[in-house]
Each structure stands twice: as C-alpha cells, then as structure tokens.
Nucleic acid binder design. Structure first.
Lengths: 144, 144
DNA sequence: AATAGAGATGTTTTCAAAATCCTGTGAATA
DNA sequence: TATTCACAGGATTTTGAAAACATCTCTATT
C-alpha cells in the first residue's frame, strides 16, 4: 500500500505531534525509538518532511523537530504525497501503465470505488486528530 | 497493493479465461506476450496457480493451460491468496506487527472500512465476469 | 571565537523480491 | 520406443528499496 518510508513518515508525524506539546523539540533518536525505525533512515525521512514544510526543525543544541498548530492540520494524504508522490492516486491495481478512464483494465471501475474510499479516509483525517487518539490511551504506535 | 507476481497472476488468469474458450490450451509463451510478463517468470506463477488448483494444465504436445467452468468461478481474492497469502487481510497500514482490534494503531479503525471495501470487491468478482468484460471490447489488458 | 549538539546530505552496504537460467518429468505422436 | 513438445521446479543472478555509514553544515552557548 504505502512504501516503508511512508509508513515511517506517518508514524513519525503522529509521534512528534504527540510529544512536542509545549514547544518541546524532539530529536531524531527519540523519534527513532518511538516509531521503531532505524535512526539514520528516519533522519532522512524527517528531512524530507521538513523540506516539504510538513514539520518544523531547529538545529543546534536543544534543537529537534516540532509541529505548530498549522502542522497539526496536515492530513495523512499530505504525508503520503510528500513521500510517495501521487502513485496512490494514479496507479492501476494490475500495474498497467496504459490503464485509464478511457482505456480501463477489467478491474479498473471496480477498484475506482475502493480507491475513492481510501483517498477519502487519508484526506479527511488530520495528524492532530490522531494525536488526540493516542492521548486517549486507546491507541498505540509501538511494534510490540 | 498486490505484489508484481500477483498482478501478473491476475492478468494471466483473465487472459487464459478469455483465450481458452473451446478446450483450447494456452502456452506459456502466449500468456507471457498477452500479459506483458517475462516468460520464465510467468511460467513459475502459472505453476503456482496450477498447484493451487486455480487453473488446469496439460503437458506434452498441444499442452498448455486452460480453465474449466469451475475455474472460471474463482474470484480475484482466490488468486491473491494463492500468490500473496493473506497479507491483504491481516497487515496493518503502518506496518505494525502488534496492530490488532485489541491493540489498534491510530489509523486502524479508519483503514478497516477501506479494507472491508477492498475485500468485498476482490471476493465478489469472478474471473469469468472479467473475461466477459474483455470480450465486450470495452476493457483492455495490454500495457500500451 | 571555539565548541558541541543536532540536522542535512551523499555514499555504501544489505537483503528480499523479481527475473532468469537450467535441468527434470510427463504426455502425445509417429 | 524414440523423439519432441510443454509444464514442473530447483538454483542462480539481478535489481531496487531499505538500512547503515560517514561527512558536512548550521546554531546556541560559553
């Protein structure tokens, strides 16, 4: 569905949202631990997210990543687009390059409905909302 | 979404369904051409499908693959399970191994609905139905 | 100005999926 | 019964994403 990078990106966004409440910055090491991601790998992803303006970063001592009110309003879809591009929106389930509305593969129209659902779900939910879910204690990000 | 192998498998099933009308057997080469797949690779996939009883095969001269009435009733889901296992049914969108109904990740419940849709779609449609779509001339399998 | 913490960036290594290769086995036909 | 056609299936190579590594740059603090 999403690439590994993208999975990490989503997890990291939610993690930072949850931890960076009072202007606190979160370092790469902590993010890596909190999301069960390899440190160097997540570092790269954080840089991507920062470059794409989905998250703020501060260099130097006491630096790290944090999210402001605006950042919290990013949707999962924003993160997916930043990392995976719009593959999700355009790709054919059977991997056919020529598949389109005008030249549909046999499953095209069936899949369109599924895709519509998927997109609605990732567009609708904001990172801030997921942060609140985590805060409630009923949801988890850890791998074990 | 699906693995490359699985994409080929679905295409191959639909292709053979369409071509093997009158007890005609379809050879690996023809399947490879018809689905834009590497010959040796699709050969292996066909063997998997045959072993899983989703398709019939005949060795020797004038041999090849074909589908009977029963085979035409296989769903896309049957093919997916044969090749990719039940990853689609069980995997977490965020790749969390521990994610479950009791220990949900923040997007678990949202995604569940999308997944339900996807599964309904691949369970509902049979290979035979896709064959008919192709026969109508309004749908295509080719890559260009 | 020096230092040290922390992100940014580029390169290399690792590993699993994908693709290829090669040999084996069964069936049909002459 | 010998030969050839075509699937079966193991072994091997290739490829590309993921992970690890090393280096550079920036900024706060003293």
């Amino acid at each position: 569905m999403f690439s590994k990078s993208c999975e990490y990106a989503i997890k990291a966004m939610i993690f930072v949202a949850q931890k960076s409440d009072n202007e606190t910055r979160i370092g790469v090491k902590e993010i890596a631990k909190g999301t069960d991601a390899p440190e160097h790998f997540i570092a790269k992803i954080m840089q991507d997210l920062s470059r794409r303006k989905l998250i703020h970063s501060v260099k130097g001592p006491n630096g790290g990543f944090y999210m402001d009110k605006q950042d919290l309003m990013s949707s999962i879809a924003d993160v997916v687009r930043a990392i995976d591009g719009d593959k999700i929106y355009s790709d054919c389930v059977l991997g056919l390059k020529a598949c389109s509305e005008k030249n549909p593969c046999p499953v095209h129209h069936e899949y369109k409905e599924v895709k519509k659902n998927l997109i609605k779900m990732i567009e609708k939910n904001t990172i801030g909302e997921f942060k609140e879910k985590l805060d409630s204690g009923k949801y988890f990000l850890k791998n074990n």
